[in-house]
Simulated scan of single mutants.
Amino acid sequence: MTNKSTFSILFVAQKGKLKANGKAPILARVTVNGEMVHLATRIDVDPDRWLGKECRTPGRSAEDKYINEMLDNYRNVIKNKYNELFFRGEAITAMRLKSILTSRSDEAKRLLVLFDEFNEDYRALIGKETTHKTYTRYLLVRRRLAEFMAAKYKIKDILLSDINTKFINDFYIYLRTVDGKNGHNYHMKMIQRFRTVFKTAKDNGWVTADPFGGFKISMEETHREHLTIDELEVLMSKEMTSERLQRVKDIFVFSCFTFVALTNVCLIINKLQTN
């Protein structure tokens, strides 16, 4: 492993390049072994609210606090990528760090591109941390989003920065309209999966706003009926038409008597098969 290089991150407000709204864009100044590069944060600040030495705002107003929070998040994104390269023993330069961060951002500019990347990574966890069934649910959300954008906006994809609370609300209404046989909780879980995928973009600094903050995800209370002992005995005595169905029946009965969730039983079996 290489020796750890000198590394620093400072935020600079470009007060000499004010935008039309009078605000100054903030850049991240990254230095590695004396080599300096600048990264656009896509965050603007009122020049009078910027503390140059502290590299942040006073933090008194809600906007000040929001800017500081976004800068802290962006700092963490840069540090995490630097540490990732370091612990892999790779040579690190400021230019290479910038190239990796900016190219990654370009790849994830659009929603369905981000979804495809997330699903590819998620598929690798099947049998380890998740099940194939859960993986297919993320595929379904991706497919529904593509259908929704084509029907509502006549587009094939959308920039992550263009997604707002109205987009999410319209998507929920679309789900209830085209998939009315399923209830409120089913569609809310689809929105939750959408939020999970979008959160990866926010965690990586590809977007700063959280459009889900204005959308309330709520679940309706449900009451599931359980099988009686007599019903379980009928099931256990039933002859199945194939070995596969017999195995499914045995797993289900085992879950009923042990109170272990069916998904957890499947995960245990998958792990045993791979060992």
Rank of each mutant, 00 (worst) to 15 (best):
C256F: 09
E54A: 13
M188P: 01
A261G: 10
G59A: 07
D121A: 07
K238L: 13
M149L: 13
L145F: 08
H132I: 09
Y135G: 03
L140G: 07
K271E: 07
N270Y: 06
N68T: 00
N3L: 12
I100V: 03
E233M: 14
R195K: 15
D230E: 10
T93H: 09
K128C: 02
F87S: 03
I78H: 11
A91D: 02
W206E: 02
N73L: 02
V141L: 09
Q273K: 15
T177Q: 10
R110W: 01
D210H: 11
K199D: 02
D162K: 14
D48P: 08
N182Y: 11
Y138W: 10
I217C: 01
F167W: 13
L267F: 08
K189L: 11
L262Y: 14
F257D: 00
A62F: 13
T134I: 09
K23N: 04
A20H: 10
T263W: 06
I9N: 10
I67L: 13
R224G: 09
Q273M: 07
M190R: 15
K249N: 04
N164M: 01
A146Q: 01
Y153H: 14
F87W: 11
I26V: 06
K166D: 03
T2G: 04
E54P: 04
I67A: 05
M236Y: 11
A62S: 14
V45L: 02
E233W: 12
T6D: 13
N83R: 11
Y74N: 00
N204S: 07
G89N: 12
T263H: 04
L71Y: 11
R244N: 05
R104S: 14
I229M: 13
K23Q: 12
C266G: 03
N270I: 01
S218Y: 15
K181R: 15
R195I: 01
Y135C: 05
V37N: 04
V37I: 12
K154D: 02
R42C: 06
R60G: 09
R104H: 03
N83G: 06
F259K: 12
V253K: 07
S99N: 01
M95H: 14
V260N: 12
F86S: 01
L175H: 03
I78P: 00
Y122W: 11
L262M: 10
I126C: 11
T93N: 06
T258I: 06
M236N: 07
I251D: 00
D46I: 04
S255I: 02
F212L: 08
P47M: 14
L51A: 05
G22C: 09
L139A: 08
Y186N: 13
R224K: 15
L272K: 13
M36S: 06
R88I: 05
R176M: 04
R49D: 07
S218N: 15
A201F: 09
E84Y: 14
P47D: 03
L232H: 13
